[in-house]
């Protein structure tokens, strides 16, 4: 077992992962994420971005390979230990904001802090501070179903940032949004992370997320590639043959 480099907060080597039905997702991905860095993971749909993030955050155990977090092996941890790691060190943003529908906005944002054992008042203060910073302080007492989607996504960003995580995993946080909202959400997310020294692993399909990141990692069919060279789409396949046969 090779110890990871010291300056990497998150380090993975030769990750292999396949879904339960056996279809491959990752085949031999290695990467290192430095402290305070914003790493964009890009690639077309089905290239294994979500699988990589889920493996790195300990939600799904990798079939092969090693994952180290701050020189602690994640791949050998049990389910309980990974759960604690997720709660205490990591934060996660879903593609579609998944808030608890019964809780109002500030309670949703304060929930991870409260689950860590922080007192209610301190959790509320931290949560409302982040809501203010993300321009949704006025909505603190509303329920999630009263918000539009971009606002809900900002609430989930506040929820992810409020407990001051070491690493924030954002799985296509802008996927269901329109372009204007998309840029704004990405900007608030990356600015907030930079100002608080939070390491971010940001998955995204478009080049836009790469523009906000320090470094970009491109995946294609579960492998890490430097540049995506796909054959150019010229004309519909088979059309020439059909016209010849007439």
């Amino acid at each position: 077992m090779v110890a990871p480099p010291d300056n990497d907060v998150l380090w993975a080597r030769a990750l292999h992962f396949s879904y339960r039905d056996g279809s491959p997702a990752l085949s031999g991905v290695s990467l290192g994420v430095q402290q305070g860095e914003i790493l964009a993971v890009t690639g077309p749909r089905g290239s294994g971005k979500t699988a990589l993030l889920r493996c790195l955050s300990g939600q799904a155990p990798a079939r092969q390979g090693e994952i180290w977090f701050n020189s602690v092996p994640v791949h050998t941890m049990g389910a309980q230990a990974r759960e604690r790691l997720r709660r205490d060190r990591f934060a996660w943003i879903d593609p579609t904001p998944s808030l608890v529908p019964e809780l109002n906005v500030w309670e949703n944002a304060a929930l991870p802090l409260m689950l860590r054992g922080t007192g209610r008042r301190r959790a509320k203060t931290a949560a409302t501070e982040w809501l203010e910073r993300l321009d949704i302080g006025a909505l603190a007492r509303k329920r999630p179903h009263q918000l539009v989607r971009a606002e809900r996504q900002r609430v989930s960003i506040a929820r992810a940032l409020a407990p001051a995580p070491t690493v924030l995993f954002a799985d296509e946080p802008t996927a269901p949004l329109h372009r204007a909202d998309r840029t704004q959400v990405l900007r608030t997310l990356t600015n907030a992370a930079r100002s608080h020294g939070v390491t971010v692993v940001l998955a995204g399909q478009d080049a836009e997320s790469a523009a906000f990141a320090d470094r970009t990692l491109t995946l294609l069919d579960g492998r890490r590639v430097n540049t995506v060279h796909l054959p150019p789409v010229t004309e519909p396949e088979g059309r020439a043959a059909c016209s010849l046969s007439v």
Binding site: Q59, R86, S98, L111, L115
Partner: peptide, 16 residues
């Protein structure tokens, strides 16, 4: 089930 899954992704302890 959806809400529960989201809470588990946050790292909410199953005991809670």
């Amino acid at each position: 089930a959806d809400t529960t899954a989201a809470l588990l992704r946050l790292g909410a302890p199953t005991a809670t």
